[in-house]
Design a protein around this nucleic acid. Structure first.
Lengths: 365, 365
DNA sequence: TGCCGCGTCGGTACCGTTTCCAGTCTTTGG
DNA sequence: CCAAAGACTGGAAACGGTACCGACGCGGCA
């Protein structure tokens, strides 16, 4: 456990004393404190505070004097001191598994807009899909006294992470994850089933009978739910569909490995569903390497619409959701608990399937 | 000048709670303070502080007592109070123009890794390409007392932003932007010229004589430098090359608009250089809409390698740079000034051109 | 005239740490 | 044996604000 001392703490060289050094020359442009404003305006500190915080008990004359002093000194209140005293920081921490995923970026975008308009600001930490960092970041935010947290965890099952979350004392909102009720967390989740079910139905309708699902970790809701949905469809359809499931992680590496494995098997599946944009990338790399063409050789569906799926030739069918909206909803859930005193609850957003030419009918259909 | 109250200040709805409500129910286990640790261990607060900060003047017995009390109470120091007292927050603010741009995400990734390993953490704010938000975010970080800032500004020329930056008192590092020396900012920039020059030379070598450059705002270094580089090549080559420049913004919208304009002209250019991944997207949309095929109808070069350019059919030539490295260098520059007392300086990273099949030779070459 | 209430303002006790300073208790050197 | 030097420790003053509380002046009312 790294000591609380940061790097190079020795150079403090205070000096202190002197309190009100009367001959403070003008060029010593250290930032002004409320104390200095009060001195300049020749009023009490408390009056300065009252003026600045809009307290009703201030005369017009007092306001005037204080404000001119504030302007003269270019005074800006110290958020740290305010937070310490008020017990709130007006900031929320956002832990996300992978910032370089454009999906995440959209979620952040949506969340930030809502939070900012409520007067809160966002602190972001990236855990690089490392469950250990999840916990560390949560603790960090905790010691930073954020008013609440939004979490997009790398793993829902890591006990260290869960222990840490259990001790958080502000409201917590998880994104596209589910936590046992005892954590008292709100959740903004997608229902991944309808989109996935429609996609699988579509492929079966086109005549596909061997379908592979390359997806992420089952330690995360999306991974689990997508597999379940595909299983459900396969089970209820009368056609004899052979399904291959390749869960792993939401990385291009897993996409490549799984695609290589499944496309090298004999007979190989006639359709692949990639459960995320990173997986799609790995998949396409392998297909190019093997000289396989989307639609002609293998039909393809991906999760989440990104420029690559839209502009690929042929365009790639995708299971879509409103990511910006997901972030927005998460932020609203948090704000509700922060200022409205709402109870924790779960908000579910739909997913839909958009067929595109990457799904081709099989001969005879 | 926005008042000291943050945005949406009216919704404060204090209400207060009964200040120190003594009968806080047992389960409300508010976090422990150093004071409580001291009481439990029956020592002075200052001793607790000494133990926790690794001060040499502590007996083994004292350390023992304090640490067990810390463990029993699950005590964690309050970063706010520490920061207030120490005068440093161990955090740096990062203002970026657009978080949903994967390039930015990589830059953040690189910066965050370096900062974290130096004990600093990253606060991120997104200005959505709005120069007004740039300034607001910088002010926000300033009042949050961050130790330093990394800025990827929406505009280098916005006076309000520049005024604000001039008043920042910690070290500032700008990314891929240039600021007048009087700001005393460090900079991590790319030299966009070599990559762009190679690309233009390559196209000319292939026989192209009408080349369009769709790029972003000239209020940012990359936009400016790319145009200059292309102008330079066109000027020095003996071939009569007709160049069309379409600066605008780094958005898909501008990409579409510019592509539509230039591809609708007669005669249309035989090659297009898109100065960013968002511009590429707009460009490809329009080409598909018009039924034009990359390479066959129009040769294409893009700036910054993304999955789309790699996996597109045909693969799209790109002007590359090390974005993660750019972030890393920026962070190192900042750390150097923070703990090493370095002087502001500018670090330049190269760009290179990677030809790909999207650039086709013209008949007769 | 005396009292009360109201509009204002100053004083001050915090928030949770860090750090300087001044002790106390040993230990050690002369 | 006594003084000085350590080794530890407790007390208290900051850091920059917020908010409660009490004081003050003054007009209105009985």
């Amino acid at each position: 456990m790294a000591g609380p001392n940061g790097p190079g703490g020795e150079a403090l060289a205070r000096g202190d004393r002197g309190a009100t050094s009367p001959e403070a020359n003008g060029s010593a442009r250290s930032r002004a404190s409320m104390r200095e404003v009060a001195d300049l305006a020749d009023v009490a500190i408390s009056s300065v505070s009252r003026v600045l915080s809009g307290h009703p008990d201030v005369s017009a004359q007092m306001r005037e004097r204080v404000l001119t002093a504030v302007a003269r000194l270019d005074y800006e209140p110290d958020f740290l001191a305010q937070s310490l005293r008020r017990g709130q920081t007006l900031s929320v921490g956002f832990v996300l598994a992978d910032i370089s995923n454009p999906l995440m970026a959209d979620i952040v975008l949506g969340a930030e807009a809502v939070l900012r308009s409520a007067g809160y600001s966002l602190l972001l930490m990236n855990s690089e899909n490392d469950a250990g960092l999840d916990a560390a970041h949560v603790r960090f935010f905790q010691s930073r006294r954020v008013d609440g947290m939004i979490l997009s965890l790398a793993s829902e099952t890591n006990v260290a992470t869960l222990d840490t979350i259990a001790q958080v004392d502000g409201p917590v909102v998880v994104i596209d994850r589910e936590l046992p009720a005892r954590f008292g967390a709100s959740a903004a989740v997608n229902d991944h089933r309808p989109g996935m079910e429609a996609a699988v139905e579509h492929l079966i309708d086109l005549g596909h009978r061997r379908i592979a699902l390359i997806t992420g970790s089952t330690a995360q809701l999306p991974g689990r739910e997508r597999m379940e949905a595909m299983r459900a469809v396969v089970a209820r359809r009368p056609e004899a569909v052979e399904a291959v499931y390749l869960p792993g992680s939401f990385s291009t590496d897993h996409g490549e490995a799984a695609a290589r494995q499944v496309l090298g098997s004999d007979p190989r599946p006639t359709a692949i569903i990639a459960g995320g944009n990173q997986l799609l990338i790995g998949c396409l790399r392998v297909m190019r390497e093997l000289g396989l063409k989307v639609a002609r050789d293998v039909s393809l569906v991906t999760c989440d619409d990104v420029p690559l799926s839209e502009l690929y030739e042929p365009p790639i069918a995708s299971i879509d959701r409103d990511t910006v909206g997901l972030g927005r909803v998460a932020a609203e859930l948090l704000i509700g608990r922060l200022v409205g005193g709402d109870e924790p609850r779960t908000e579910v957003l739909a997913t839909t399937f958009s067929p595109r030419p990457s799904c081709a009918p099989l001969p005879g259909h």
